[in-house]
Design a protein around this nucleic acid. Structure first.
Lengths: 342, 342
DNA sequence: CTGAAAGCGCTTACAG
DNA sequence: CTGAAAGCGCTTACAG
């Protein structure tokens, strides 16, 4: 592998000059520049990451993380990923600041970002609320030269450099596909339990489900009877499912598109409706895993939460140190778990 | 983060001495050693990987890879993983030598290992045939100080330091679990198509399938009618499936536990038996993906082949440079793909 | 526009 | 048993 030192020797210049050219720092005579680029290309130069990272330690990088919904157990796995990458990056003199805003208030998230900027962060990873103020704030940071990566939920209209998370529409399609397979022939009368109408990922999953359910091939099999909302709250979920099942004795399948699943399942069991009831959910919080193992939930479709914690910070660190171009859309895998592989 | 330099200053010794203690190179006065260890512990010293890797470049590490079944398209994804990690490690002055032995002959694989040792490899990654001679060879390398990691297929009785690959028994169980869900209530009469009786992973999958099929809960639903072998060969597979279907008109489900799937599916289609036939397979070679998309195959259970290429070399490199303790058993995820998420 | 030097953290060969 | 020095590849602040 060629090094900057070798290129410098071949070009008859100093390593500093080669560095200036290769990293586009400017201020190099065009002829010298051309010569260096040619040699680098001929030798197929690729920078040595260990060298870059070691040198970058003097920058004392600071990365900020902002996320909402701290009290949702889904985020426990995300946090585990954050802890892991934090421990790795701390060896490189890189500090992570995490701000979790329990509420869904726009201003809280904006304040959190401001506090981090105050601390001097060089880049931001955010699980954002889909609100205009947050988009504006992200664009503001971009203008200041602070790159942002969204995770778990995207802000496609903002100037964020990348997104790491689920393709929610496709995961809703996958649930519909599973239901189709799980009940070949006979009809399913389906109750859908969403989280909140205002949360994009919950509605996108339902859209995805409908993509398949309303297709020619599935029209007669997947019959959506009702859609209710539980605000990710267990007590509410118990109530709405209890009501829905009483109102619709024909329901024989449930699709939980968000959290608070166990409350809803309790209603199913208390009404003695779990026998013959097909239940598919998302994510693998402990209470869901328990219900899958017991056979109450037949399948749960997951989105690699751990990776959602690790990858954004890894990408930002690489971006800031090696200047690596980042992939814009990084969908996590849509993983299907049943009793046997959970 | 504390560094060796800082510890040396605090202990009043040179960095070389700290290095000797921390990396157990011996030859340090017990008192000095104790003092250094105490300081390192108090400061929670963790070595800087960038420093280690940079320094390790002078070792000019060589890693060997041996794998069989080159002509099996399953290994294309594994090879893609190998290429990726090879490109990464080449920046660190680390060379990868790959030997693919097309045959299943024991001696070929042993010869391949010997050639690599001749080249001076510091460690070996091998997708091994489960044969006594290979086990002995791996133990021989271990005695020489050359560590081995198995991938795709394990040699648990050997002195290999780790395994990266599928838990085949569990993946067979997962297929049975899917079949149970896919046909709630009515009975499935199942034909199983294995690869070769002598290949451990094929038989383990069948054992796993039987674990579930013979359980109290599934006895009446999952009825295994016949088990045939195709030697991972398309022509053979067409023939055995053709015969099996003719002999057993009651068969309404097929479990392909190995390769050569498309040949078998052709037999199903030519007999007009695909309507109402539940087919579950393993892995995602292009022809299988095609059949899943067409709806001929309902689901395929995969084992992260790309990771099986990347991880063994990554682990060996880390082991040789940082001395990191390696996890012994590294099961890859059991991934379920259906039409919607493939 | 360019170079020389120091430094990031770790390891190694040599000298004593 | 221990230390001083050089080196892995890259970047940066300074001098010219």
């Amino acid at each position: 592998m060629p090094t900057i030192k070798e290129i410098a020797a071949l070009a008859g210049v100093s390593r500093g000059t080669v560095d200036r050219v290769l990293n586009k720092r400017g201020g190099v005579h065009p002829d010298t520049k051309a010569r260096i680029l040619e040699i680098a290309k001929a030798l197929d130069y690729r920078p040595n990451k260990a060298g870059i990272v070691l040198s970058a330690q003097r920058k004392n990088l600071k990365l900020g993380v902002v996320m909402f919904g701290t009290n949702n157990p889904f985020f426990d796995d995300v946090k585990a990923g954050l802890k892991q990458i934090e421990s790795e990056l701390s060896c490189y003199n890189c500090t992570i600041y995490i701000k979790a805003t329990p509420s869904f208030r726009e201003q809280d998230q904006i304040d959190a970002i401001d506090e981090l900027v105050e601390k001097g962060i060089h880049a931001l990873a955010i699980a954002p609320q889909n609100q205009e103020g947050v988009v504006k704030k992200v664009d503001e940071l971009a203008a200041k030269g602070i790159p942002t990566i969204t995770f778990n939920s995207d802000l496609p209209s903002s100037k964020r450099i990348a997104y790491v998370g689920s393709n929610y529409r496709k995961s809703g399609q996958t649930v519909a596909g599973l239901m189709k397979l799980f009940n070949q022939g006979s009809q399913l009368n389906i109750g859908i339990i969403g989280g909140a109408k205002s949360v994009l990922c919950h509605t996108e999953r339902i859209e995805g489900f409908k993509d398949i359910a309303s297709s020619q091939a599935a029209k007669k099999i997947l019959n959506i009877v009702d859609v209710v909302w539980n605000n990710d709250d267990d007590v509410t979920c118990y109530q709405v499912v209890d009501d829905m099942l009483k109102a619709h004795p024909e329901i024989n399948a449930l699709y939980f598109t968000a959290g608070a699943i166990s409350g809803g399942c309790r209603a199913v069991m208390e009404q003695g409706r779990n026998k013959g009831m097909l239940i598919i959910t998302h994510d693998s919080v402990p209470s869901t895993v328990e219900l899958v193992k017991k056979g109450i939930i037949q399948a749960t479709v997951c989105q690699q939460p751990y990776i959602q914690g690790v990858k954004p910070l890894q990408m930002l660190f690489d971006y800031l140190t090696t200047g690596e171009v980042v992939e814009e859309i990084n969908y996590t895998d849509i993983e299907i778990f049943i009793k046997e592989n959970i």
